[in-house]
Structures are given as structure tokens and as C-alpha cells.
Nucleic acid binder design. Sequence first.
DNA 1: GTCTATAAAAAGATAGAC
DNA 2: GTCTATCTTTTTATAGAC
Lengths: 211, 211
Amino acid sequence: MMSDADADTKQRILAAAEAEFLARGYDRSRTQAIADRAQINKAMLHYHFRSKDELFAQVFREKAKQLFPQVEASLREQPDFIRFVCRFVDLYLAYLIENPFLPSYLMQVATNHVELLQQVQIDLPKRLVAAFEAAVKAKVIRPHDARQFVVSLLGMCVMPFVGKNLIQGFLGLDEREYHALLAARAEEIKRYVVLLLTPEHPPERRRTKEA
Amino acid sequence: MMSDADADTKQRILAAAEAEFLARGYDRSRTQAIADRAQINKAMLHYHFRSKDELFAQVFREKAKQLFPQVEASLREQPDFIRFVCRFVDLYLAYLIENPFLPSYLMQVATNHVELLQQVQIDLPKRLVAAFEAAVKAKVIRPHDARQFVVSLLGMCVMPFVGKNLIQGFLGLDEREYHALLAARAEEIKRYVVLLLTPEHPPERRRTKEA
DNA sequence: GTCTATAAAAAGATAGAC
DNA sequence: GTCTATCTTTTTATAGAC
């Protein structure tokens, strides 16, 4: 049983923890900082959640649903696979711009808390692969390795976020320039998608054996 | 002044620290673990290096030279920019397969120790951009935003390393399959490079205004 | 359910002998 | 230069009153 106040506190802690964990990662996060954000005492945190670990796990299980934007619907509707991927790129980049810490957070969970990752179900990538292979079979896109494509696509999307400081440092970009690069990122990736997948891109040097 | 034994110990500590920091990152690394690896006492570590922080800094300053493989030479020799980039991709991926922790390490430094990153000089990316823009001007490659290209290229290269568990989980790959994907990765990226940069790729739908 | 006070554990750093 | 033993600090976790 849970009173309103109880639920509210618990929610505040969860929200505070999410902010802290996303921004700083598990190791650099402090239970004290989470308590401060939630405007409660550290003891409360341990009352509602056994430990930092347990809190982290609960936050992740909740957050796992939002690691990718909702694109499932459009996946079924869209008959044109290239258009679908382009739409995904638009959605995903807009989503990441709103939630820039998501990629690093996800990768940290993947490296340091694999068991958590395995507990949740994230099937967007596998669906993408399946849709990709169906599209190849239907000859609406050029034959290609679906897994490699997904890795490339994800890499191109998340690179500016997981490597923000790196990119700024390497290319010498100030905040404004960095954000300009971000804003133009979706177009860049879509160009790649179209270029790679459009079938019968007029003859290059080599051609695969196909009718 | 430094005796041989002294230098040897210091080197052992540095080597041990590098291994630990690369594999686990700063936060999860333990001075005790480093001492164990180096077969010395924790006190020795603090004798040769003031603190964990100082040790980390020295390791990074040393490692910074090896964050990218040596490609400077071939950059000047190679007149064909596309070939040069392809060669870089081959070199870089082979290098990363040998040093799979480098990308994550670099990104962690970039996010949690920016000041260290700023102290060292890593000019490969800027050189790439410069060479890219020169190649555009010389019309040996298609006009394109150099910075976006570099971000894409890096993203495609490092994604399988920074997101190993993620990819394995998402795509359901066991170790063998993951390594197969890695082995084929260079070809995948080079395909992208050629596709994107080769000039006058026979007419698509739209064309840029150009002679 | 919430707090104050305190314990316990972990990890980094130092003192001092050899 | 190297060690053992110890201190200090940081951070997580619990006891117990209200």
C-alpha cells in the first residue's frame, strides 16, 4: 500500500536519481546529490530503495522504455523502407538533441551493468534488421549487410553525443558551431542512407550478379 | 636523477596504470589494483606519483600520442584523397581491434577530464578536414561538409568498440559473430567513403549546380 | 514516512622504519 | 627506493527517535 505522499516522494527520488545518473553516470553519481535534488534526506533514499544499486536498477528499468523514440507504429505503416529509415533518423536525432545524455548512459549501462541490459527488451534494432532484410528481398533497397548498416546508422547518430567534447576539441568548435553541426546532422545521415540503399544506383565499376 | 631500478619501477607502475585505466576507466580503477599489477606497494605508487589523479594525467599524456595510428606520412604521399581515407580506415580499424579500449578511454577523458585533452595536441582530425577541403577544391571528391564527414567516419569506426555489449545485445551476437562483424567492418566503411566521395557519381534524381 | 546521528566500508594518501 | 602500518576522507548504509 502506498499513500499519495509516499508515492510522491518515491517519484521525486526516482526523478532526481534519473537526472543524476543520466548526467554523471553511476560511478560519479552521489546518493547525497540525489537526495538534495529530491529535497529529502539520504535516509529516505535507503528507506524507499534498498541501495544505490537498487535505485540505479529501477531507474534503468523505467528508462529503458524511452531509450529510443516511438517509431514502431510508423515502421508498419511505411511501405518505403528508405523513407522509413530517414524518418527514423529525423525522429532519433531530434530525440537525442532533447536527451543528449541517453547514448552515453546506455553505453555505460551496457559496459558496467550488462545484467540490467539483458533484463529489458529493446527490439528496435532487431526489427530494423528484419525490415532491412525484407526490403532487400523485395528489392526496394540495394543488397547489403543489415547488421553493418545498423551499426553504421547508430554510430553516425550517437557520435556527436557520446563524443561531444572530443569533437569540439578535435575540430575546434565553440558551442554555437557545435550546435550548428548537430542541427545539420540528420540531413547528413539521411544522405548516407539514401546513397547506400537506393537500388540500381546507375552503374558503378563493379556490379553484383543480379537481374 | 634516476637509477635503473627506479626507472624500471616507475615504468612498471605506468604500464600497470595504463592497463587498469584503459580497461576500467578512471572511476572504476583502484590504486590497489594498479599496485598489484605492478607488483609493488600502494605507497610506492604515491612515492613516484603524487596521487591517482597525477598518475592518470601522466598516463594520458603518454597515451595521447597513440590514440590514432601513424598515418601522417601517408597523408602527404597519397595524392588520391579517397584512397587515403580508405587506407586510414584500414589502419584505424586494425589498430582498434588491437586496442579495443582506446575509444571509450578517449571519450571518458573527454567528458571527465577535459583539461587533459586540451593539454595535448591531436591534429589528425583537423588535418583530415583540411585535406578534405583541399580535395573538394581540386574536385577530386564530391563537395561535402568536411566536419560532418569526419564525425560520420569516426562514429562508424568507433561504434563497435564503445558499444560492444550494446551491439551484441541488440543484435543477439555471440563472440564469434561479433568478431566476424568487426572483421568486415573496414570494408563496410570504405564502401560508404567511396560512395559518398566519388565525384560525378552518375546522375541521381537531384543534381547540385555544377559544371 | 521522515529525520538526526552514527556506523561501516572503501579507497586514497601519509608516516616512519629499514 | 621500498615496505608495513596507519590515517583521512569520502561515500554508502543503518539505528533509533519522532
